[in-house]
Design a protein around this nucleic acid. Structure first.
Length: 894
DNA sequence: CTTGGATGGATCA
DNA sequence: TTGATCCAT
């Protein structure tokens, strides 16, 4: 009941764009923020430092560079790196107190939350985000010419299998300009997936741009840095995230999965790092994920079990259907303590004492949680580990929880132990325990919202269904992709049909690409999950063959650049290949020695070798060590650069989709140096030509690496003085941020009530959310500072669609939000309202536990963000697939 | 004298 | 539902 994972339909396997955002050595960053004097120094965070310097729980990158790892004690770290600062976790009640990090983690999550409510916190410093909807929106805008991807946003972005992001962009561009080239798709993927596969790279790239904005916001608002993975599912996002750290992000392109998996140890996949992964390797006699392709689904099910077999069958093909299940607050609150060796608890008094300490912490945290989230835990679990003749036996007992003061908790905890543990005391002795206790834990959970609405999920579900966009529940892509009125493809083809004799230049390359795909002969249909003979799904992707002669000048130019790079690469290949290739291939099977990729602290070098290895196997011609990846990226995609460096002038930019989509903002083409390659090739042309040494390089690199420093991309917010990325999205989101700030903690309570009343109202006026022009709603209007307002307006003007939607009469373009009074262009109102909705939903989520929805795979769970005036239609099959109560039942209960 | 502590989520019978 | 166990950070 309380929770399980949700899954999307397999037909949507490539439709989502998922981020995994992981804070870099989070505890260290928290300490550095709290004590600025630590900045730049190698540090480690330790708990309990009396014995051997304490246990290290986090190491920053400066210390890792000196060879300090986790798994060391504080003293060993000192040996390894005498300058290291060991920061102690404070002790409260004789226990390590981690609340600092929880609070900081929440700060981060609050920033993330502003970008999507499809946010799943995976731990204190990690979160999954489903940004499919935003990607689709931008994709649409891109196609409409109202959104431009700025390459600058992609500094610090990597794509697995590509030496630098510029090459990835180039390839996307060239594929778009040269659609006949992608025949290979149809060989490698199910024909039903072709549309999604074709869009995959571009959508991931857009996702990376969004991810960059998100990470910049995190940095700006919390000062913390993080890394991220961008992929079509959670597991791949997680995998990608670990490949380039710290402060970097990594795209895991669909086309690279098979070559990546060839030598990816099974244990690298989340969920396979432990006993189960070891089992898999033992039983199937495999080491690498790619080897699993040789088994049919039935074989896997036979050797493992049904569920795991199927999961693995899909996983080794890069498919993971687990949905991002929105959850901001944890489902349980617990604390525990070890009592190793001599410290084990043998007497009643000691046990009471420690139960008391744990109870106090629980009571504290419960109270805080109640204040913030307005919920109460209804269950307590007391766990313990006893040593019974040299064997550790763990047990746990649960009890209902009704009183929340530490004394009651302690009392109940002790009682449940006594009552339910056989031979608790030594015979004839009421004070001595029969078996010593080595570990104690108290955890509370089964939260119930405090204000009447006990049935956990109904509230959110009702919310979700009532609103237009219903972003939180289930996967937004599921509905959109199946929805025939969905933005991308159908609209495009329709337009194409209609405009057949219209101006040809209106047709973008992307449109042609889709049109081209439509005309392809269909392939025989085949169910991908059940058939045994479709092992070819991913494992027979042909190596990237040399591109056929590109038609457009632009593509030709890119090809030239590639060729040039190939020559360069041949010169430098030896430098790379000598020390590489062993790291990933020779890696041991999953062992407890965790994360060997980062264990050495040589992450940069290792990731480079990792790519080199993958590229070699893939036979890709793009393994050149880049000297200036970003300079190249700009050069490759900037139309200005193309024209400038070309003697011939043809093909107006409009014919190349990407030439238009990628807007060259800074044609200064400042050479940017990758530190890794700089080390390798100190005399590369870009660097030597500058004739300066490290100082120039560092400043230049820093400038590009941290977009905050580049003023030309930013405007200043008059409200807070902070710099904001000067695109419409960022400005909007920043404005919303200020609005969100107004919802102070005191206001939350009031806001909750407001939401509550809306719930009852909504029964009668479901359509009231429709964005309508409301002339007299500007009362609550928060006076925007004129300057920022002006910037927004002008940018919006720029962003306005060139063609008005047909269904909306074009009267006044400006409307004001009847929730906050903010004035904006009509077209932006749906999005803006979504923001309010998100906020409301967030508040309601605070109140109770997570949403549980089983995504039944019915079509059109969601209405797309388009057609704002149309009331939400919920497909009956989707409702049927839902195990929750139908919405009508909820209303009748009210 | 301990061989990663503290914490949270999930699965399965 | 509960309790034992596993997984991950």
């Amino acid at each position: 009941m309380s929770s399980t994972r949700n899954f999307i339909n397999i037909s949507n396997k490539y439709d989502r764009v998922i981020l995994l955002i992981d804070m870099d050595c989070f505890y260290c960053q928290v300490e550095e923020k709290l004590d600025p004097s630590l900045a730049g120094k190698p540090i480690a965070v330790v708990q309990y430092n009396p014995w051997r310097g304490g246990g290290i729980i986090a190491v920053n990158y400066a210390a890792r560079a000196k060879g300090v790892t986790r798994h060391m004690r504080g003293d060993e770290a000192k040996e390894q790196c005498p300058e290291i600062e060991l920061v102690k976790v404070p002790n409260v009640r004789e226990k390590a107190d981690l609340s600092k990090y929880r609070d900081a983690g929440k700060d981060v999550a609050n920033v993330l939350q502003k970008f999507t409510n499809l946010l799943e916190r995976a731990s204190v410093d990690e979160a999954y985000l489903d940004i499919t909807a935003e990607v689709n929106k931008r994709m649409e805008n891109m196609n409409a010419g109202t959104f431009f991807l700025q390459p600058e946003i992609l500094v610090n972005t990597f794509a697995v299998g590509y030496e630098n992001i510029g090459l990835y962009i180039s390839e996307i561009t060239s594929k778009i300009s040269n659609p006949c080239d992608d025949d290979e798709f149809s060989l490698s993927y199910d024909v039903d997936d072709t549309p999604a596969v074709r869009k995959s790279d571009l959508r991931l790239l857009i996702g990376a741009a969004i991810c960059s904005e998100i990470r910049a916001a995190v940095k700006r608002e919390t000062s913390f840095e993080c890394s991220a993975g961008i992929a079509h599912n959670k597991i791949l996002a997680k995998l990608g995230c670990g490949m380039n750290k710290p402060n970097k992000q990594t795209i895991l392109p669909l086309s690279q999965i098979s070559s990546l998996f060839v030598n990816l140890p099974v244990g690298k996949i989340k969920g396979l790092g432990g006993k189960f992964g070891f089992d898999v390797c033992e039983r199937l006699k495999v080491k690498y994920l790619g080897e699993l392709l040789n088994f049919s689904e039935v074989e896997l099910q036979r050797k493992l079990d049904g569920k795991n077999g199927s999961w693995l069958y899909l996983m080794c093909r890069g498919i993971d259907l687990e949905a991002v299940t929105p959850r901001f607050y944890s489902k349980s609150i617990g604390c525990c303590k070890k009592f190793p060796g001599r410290n084990s608890i043998t007497g009643l008094k000691t046990l009471e004492h420690w139960l008391g300490e744990l109870s106090k912490e629980i009571a504290d945290r419960l109270e805080k949680d109640f204040d913030e989230n307005n919920r109460r835990a209804k269950q307590m679990v007391v766990g313990y580990v006893q040593e019974i003749n040299t064997e550790d036996i763990s047990s746990s007992r649960s009890v209902p929880l009704s009183a929340y003061d530490p004394e009651s908790i302690q009392k109940v905890a002790l009682e449940v132990l006594k009552r339910n543990t056989d031979q608790f005391f030594k015979p004839g002795n009421d004070l001595a325990l029969n078996n010593a206790i080595k570990f104690l834990s108290i955890s509370v959970g089964k939260f119930e919202s405090n204000n009447g609405c006990n049935e956990q999920n109904t509230l959110q579900q009702m919310f979700a269904k009532q609103k237009k966009k219903e972003p939180t529940v289930s996967c937004p892509s599921v509905g959109e992709q199946n929805d025939p009125s969905s933005d991308l493809e159908p609209r495009i083809t329709l337009k194409d049909e209609q405009n057949r004799q219209g101006p040809v230049s209106k047709t973008t390359a992307l449109e042609r690409m889709f049109a081209n795909q439509k005309a392809k002969p269909p392939r025989p249909q085949e169910s991908s999950t059940n058939s045994d003979n479709d092992k070819t799904l991913l494992n027979e992707i042909p190596p990237t063959k040399p591109r056929t002669t590109p038609t457009s000048f632009f593509a030709a130019h890119l090809n030239k650049i590639k060729q040039q790079k190939l020559i360069e690469s041949q010169k430098a290949t030896t430098i790379i290949s000598e020390e590489d290739n062993n790291l990933f291939c020779d890696e041991a099977l999953p062992t407890s020695e965790e994360n060997s990729v980062s264990a050495q602290g040589e992450e940069e070098a290792q990731s480079a070798s990792f790519f080199a290895g993958a590229a070699q196997i893939h036979g890709s011609p793009t393994k050149a060590p880049s000297t200036s990846f970003f300079a190249r990226a700009i050069k490759s995609v900037s139309p200005a650069a193309v024209i400038e460096s070309s003697p011939i002038k043809q093909d107006p930019p409009s014919t190349s989709f990407f030439a238009r989509a990628i807007k060259s903002v800074s044609p200064k083409a400042k050479p940017e140096a990758n530190p890794k390659t700089l080390k390798r090739k100190p005399d590369s042309p870009e660097i030597s030509s500058t004739n300066e040494t490290t100082s120039t390089y560092q400043t230049e690199y820093a400038e590009l690496a941290t977009p905050e420093l580049r003023d030309e991309f930013y405007i200043k917010c008059e409200t807070c003085g902070k710099k904001i990325l000067s695109d419409e999205e960022s400005i909007q989101s920043h404005q919303d941020h200020h609005l969100a700030e107004e919802l102070s903690r005191q206001q939350r309570e009031e806001y909750r009530k407001e939401v509550q009343t809306k719930i009852s109202q909504s029964a009668s006026q479901k359509k009231s959310k429709t964005p309508t022009v409301n002339p007299n709603a500007a009362k609550k209007a928060k006076p925007n500072s004129p300057k920022v307002g002006a910037s927004i307006e002008s940018i919006m003007k720029f962003m306005q669609p060139l063609t008005q939607p047909d269904d909306i009469p074009s009267t006044s373009a400006q409307v004001s939000c009847d929730k906050c009074g903010k004035a904006m262009h009509r077209d932006l109102m749906p999005e803006h309202l979504d923001y309010h909705y998100a906020k409301e939903l967030q508040v309601s989520l605070n109140r109770s536990d997570m949403v549980k929805v089983v995504v039944g795979g019915g079509p059109a769970l969601n209405k797309s963000i388009k057609s704002p005036g149309v009331p939400k239609k919920t497909s009956s099959s989707a409702v049927a697939a839902n195990k929750s109560k139908p919405i009508t039942q909820f209303f009748s209960q009210l």
